[in-house]
Design a protein around this nucleic acid. Sequence first.
DNA 1: CTGTTAGCGCATTCAC
DNA 2: GTGAATGCGCTAACAG
Lengths: 345, 345
Amino acid sequence: MKKGSLPTLSEVARKAGVGNTTVSRVINGGERVSPETLARVQKVIAALGYRPNQAARVLKGHRTRTIGMIVPSLADPFFSSCAEAVQAVARANDSLLIVTATQNDPHKDLENMKMLVSHRVDGLLIAPANSKSDAIRDLAARISIPVVTLDRPILNSTIPAVLTDNYQGARCATEHLIEHGCKRIVCLTGESTLFTIQERMRGYRAAVEEAGLTCTINTSVKDYKSAEYAIESLLASAHQPDALLTLKNSTTIFAFEVLQKLNIPVPQQLALIGFDDFELATTLRPAVSVIQQPVEDIGRVAAELLFERFEDGARAGTKSRSGKRPVTLENCLVRRSSCGCPAHS
Amino acid sequence: MKKGSLPTLSEVARKAGVGNTTVSRVINGGERVSPETLARVQKVIAALGYRPNQAARVLKGHRTRTIGMIVPSLADPFFSSCAEAVQAVARANDSLLIVTATQNDPHKDLENMKMLVSHRVDGLLIAPANSKSDAIRDLAARISIPVVTLDRPILNSTIPAVLTDNYQGARCATEHLIEHGCKRIVCLTGESTLFTIQERMRGYRAAVEEAGLTCTINTSVKDYKSAEYAIESLLASAHQPDALLTLKNSTTIFAFEVLQKLNIPVPQQLALIGFDDFELATTLRPAVSVIQQPVEDIGRVAAELLFERFEDGARAGTKSRSGKRPVTLENCLVRRSSCGCPAHS
DNA sequence: CTGTTAGCGCATTCAC
DNA sequence: GTGAATGCGCTAACAG
């Protein structure tokens, strides 16, 4: 073995005094090889520190045993938890996970897809920045490898999606607030262009209108300052709210901080429910009630769906028909104190 | 193009009526190709949706333009933030990032290394579960690709490491507590086998002993219950502590929750500083003072070091001599309220 | 049970 | 400027 480069199969074969095929058989399970040869070859492999070169296998038309995952950000606990689950499934299927981040830039979605295709990943998991992107749909249709979206779908496409029931979740949260007697529930969205947020808005609106209440949606919260401004304005208005529904994590936290700063009694003066759970929600005072998404499940199910398709593809040839409708996972309302429920434990 | 399989370079060549070489030139920058041919080939490439097959390039002895990263868990904000930074550097170097998780199982460290080598990653970033592992050191020495460790080193090896100054950080936190007049500072470690934790213990011990105070280390905290037991015992003892130093994130949070539950005035009765910052540290009441690690920097610097080595390798042939000593990043004390400092802003 | 052979898709000589 | 030929490391027929 030349220094600086890894040993190859033929080197192993030579040193072991056998043919290439035999070595190949050994590294692929050792079937049809006599015990002595097997042992000898394995010894040489160990001695040389030989590792089969995946690239060569791939070239022979085999799977790369890698999958790609495209998410907005790995630093986001939601997606990093998804990624962890995906990684676990990949590992269970003897595959590796390649992750890329887009910062919600739709352009990078495409760029990353192309790059991953170039590396011949066996399949792709995407949380697309733009659910209305025809470009992604079209590209996905061409690359001839399975694609599954998670958290957000690609609309007008047949790409399988694993989502949570954002509509129902927000609706349920709103109804819960109404049960607590809240009459003027304001919805703080944070950036409102994402599919998930829009679904949640729909859910909020449905619940509010059904109860004959007024729908008030504020999309201006981007950081602490904008939250402060928004909430102060709300409190100063004639139509003072008695509850807040925040549609994403950061919005929930900004709102909480503002309420804490202003010394607003929560939930007495203003109840609060946030969409999406976060680590210290139970530690804050009051503990924050939230709609909790099954984060690990999203990743796990999406990855499982992807690996299923590999099997299907191997068997059936073309596309599997396994459900064109998205898989929708249930969210659940976690009642802590900020909504008005009694504190427990 | 046969359905179910991606188009190849020769298919492009055929449809464009040119030779393979020409297509190859086009996809590699388009040098030495006449404008017309260039345009024609590019059109065919677009029409076919052709993407060069990385595997084939690799087989020709080129880099895979992938790097591997082995971390305990992606769900841990610390490592996912590192991973995000690494990913960004990889991307800037036109490379992809493959991540694997070990759950701190030393055996999986090795397993993952082998798998990644098989995929011919250009380099490896590892946060090893066991800093004393000779197996990792030996394997790293054989695989002939650059390896850099982060957060934790491999002791007794020349593998470059990017660490933070755990010793100094804990020492600094302890000294700060002492400046606040604390006399009986108890250190809660949480699992104490990790290299980082042991360094922090050293720092705590050094500061405490230097001040002529008693060193009390409790390694029993694993969850809320054990934290409750530990803290209640401490408070019931004759030698009642007046400050807590918690050496890892989860320990800090368990401790905080217990103190909150027991209604212990913080910092009046018991001051608290935690090692490692966390998202809601400023939102809690009191806001938790912490030693903050430059998380993104760890990932960024480690990745940059890795890519530097590729250049070096290409130039120098053998190993680069760029610093055998670990790169140590500074931590910083973030003074919030729980240590006794006045609340600000 | 084992070896020989022929490509997989591409980059790279070297001629034209 | 361009193309034909060669081989990277490996697997999959086929022989033996």
